[in-house]
Design a protein around this nucleic acid. Structure first.
Lengths: 109, 109
DNA sequence: GCTCCGTTTCGACATTGTAGAAACGAACCT
DNA sequence: AGGTTCGTTTCTACAATGTCGAAACGGAGC
C-alpha cells in the first residue's frame, strides 16, 4: 500500500486544482495568478510555494526545471496520486453537501 | 461591515455541514458521528469540539445548553454568517473545479 | 560591471487540525 | 449515602497547514 489518504487541506486543494487548470504552464507565479483570478482573493507567493513543496513531499505533485523563455522556471504537474486525492476529497465533500439547503439561513444574513 | 471573509478550513467546512445535516440534534457527539458516517473516517471528539469552539468564536455557529434526556448537552446551530461562509466557500471551489478532468491521470493510478 | 525583472527560496509566525485524558453530572445499584 | 457506569464536554498539548515578505538568483540589457 503506497496510498496516502490524509485529507487535503483547503488551500492544498486549490493549488492542486490551479496546477491542473494551467496544464503545461504550471509554475509558481502562474499558479498564484490562476488562483487569484478564479477566486478573487490575493495569495502571497510564499504561500503557493510552501504548499507546492509540501505537496511534492507527499508525492501529489512533481516538479522539474525548464529554461524556456529566458528565466529558469520550476514547472509542476499533478501526479496520479494527486488526482486521486482530489477525487477522494471531492467525493467526501459532495456526500456531506448532499441535502443541505442554505437558503433559509441565507435569507437572514 | 460585519463580514468575515476568511476562508473556511477543510475540517471547519465539514463540521459546519454536519451541524446543518443534523438539524435539531447537533451536539458534539452527534456531529462527530455524522461526519464519521458520511465520510467514513474516524474523527477524534476533541477535534470536533475545538473546531466548534473556534467556529463559535468567529460567530459562524451558536451554542446553548439543553437538558433533554438526562445528560446536559451543548446544542449547536449554524449562524447566518456560517451559512454565508459555506456558500462562499462552495462558490469559489466550484469555479476552481470547473473544466478540470481527472480521468486521464486517474487511469495511471 | 551594475541594475532591472521575473522567479524561487527561505525563515518566521498564525491558524487549523488532531488526539486523548481529565472532569462532569445524571442515573443506577446495593 | 457512596460508588460505578455512561454519555458528554472541557482542557492541554502538539502536528500540520496557511500565510507573509524579504532575501537570493539568474538572465537581459545598459
Amino acid at each position: 500500500m503506497t496510498q496516502n489518504d490524509a485529507p487535503l487541506g483547503a488551500f492544498e486543494e486549490q493549488v492542486l486544482l490551479a496546477v491542473m487548470r494551467t496544464r503545461e504552464n504550471a509554475y509558481g507565479m502562474r499558479v498564484r495568478q490562476e488562483i487569484e483570478a478564479v477566486t478573487g482573493r490575493d495569495v502571497a507567493i510564499g504561500a503557493v510555494y510552501s504548499t507546492l513543496d509540501r505537496l511534492e513531499a507527499k508525492a501529489l505533485v512533481r516538479s522539474g526545471r525548464s529554461s524556456i523563455d529566458g528565466s529558469s522556471r520550476r514547472m509542476f504537474e499533478v501526479a496520479p496520486a494527486g488526482a486521486h486525492a482530489l477525487a477522494q476529497t471531492k467525493l467526501m465533500r459532495d456526500r456531506l453537501w448532499r441535502g443541505v439547503d442554505l437558503k433559509p439561513l441565507l435569507a437572514a444574513y
